[in-house]
């Protein structure tokens, strides 16, 4: 196992870069980060639609969330793979197909996290803002969202772990990421699958578990500070 790490660590880490696209673990993390950055604003809009008063937007966002939650992520990936080139008129490459698929899928899940945050905020907060003369939009931006983003931060971090794990499915359309790199190494060496998949699995574990633990730690901290809030 050490031998494989010794020979292929750079490949595991960054794929063929700089002689090819950035891949490996770096590709995975890049993909997950881009997805989170793009999906977060989308999910906030969906969550606002879901909790809002406008029936039309409530319906639309409800359908988006439930379709995404009810469809296997692989199906979304294949849809993006198929429709991406049609919509953009040109091949956009597996990496960006995967970004689109992840953003579509994760926006729905993140939206549910944020919606839960909005709904768990004491009603007095919006009421106080209302009584002071803040419009609905200003209340959302100045009062509700800052608190929701703070309170939901641990849950969002946990969702980031899900995103990291989901990037591995980019493998099926040939995205250059960590799982892809490992299976390439596997097909070069052929006789070392146990070692290679152990390296792959354990590395994923170290990365994901770090974020999971951080999320738990933050949750305890935030939970504690909320515990002493006056009413």
């Amino acid at each position: 196992m050490l031998e494989i790490i010794n020979d292929y660590w750079l490949f595991f880490l960054i794929g063929q870069y700089p002689h090819g696209p950035l891949g490996g673990l770096a590709g995975t993390l890049l993909l997950a980060t881009i997805c989170l950055i793009l999906a977060l604003p989308c999910s906030i809009l969906i969550a606002i639609g879901r909790t809002g008063k406008n029936r039309f937007w409530r319906g639309v966002t409800f359908v988006i969330v439930y379709v995404m939650r009810g469809t296997p992520f692989l199906m979304i990936i294949f849809w993006a793979h198929f429709l991406g080139p049609i919509i953009f008129g040109t091949s956009i490459g597996a990496f960006w197909v995967m970004v689109i698929a992840l953003v579509l899928y994760e926006s729905a899940y993140l939206a549910e996290v944020i919606r839960a945050g909005i709904e768990s905020l004491p009603y007095g907060q919006t009421e106080a803002a209302k009584a002071m003369g803040f419009s609905r939009t200003k209340t959302m931006i100045l009062i509700v969202l800052p608190q929701v983003m703070y309170n939901s931060f641990p849950a969002l971090l946990s969702q980031f772990v899900s995103i990291i794990k989901e990037t591995s499915l980019g493998f099926v359309i040939g995205v250059h990421e960590f799982t892809f790199a490992a299976s390439q190494v596997n097909s070069i060496l052929l006789v070392k699958p146990v070692e290679i998949y152990l390296i792959l699995g354990l590395t994923f574990f170290i990365v994901c578990f770090t974020f999971t633990s951080a999320a738990r730690w933050l949750e305890r901290r935030i939970g504690k500070s909320q515990g002493v809030l006056p009413a």
Binding site: G124, Q125, A128, A129, A131, M132, L229
Partner: peptide, 10 residues
């Protein structure tokens, strides 16, 4: 308007 529960923004 002053509320029973203060409703300060935490």
């Amino acid at each position: 308007f002053v509320f029973q529960q203060f409703n300060l923004f935490p």
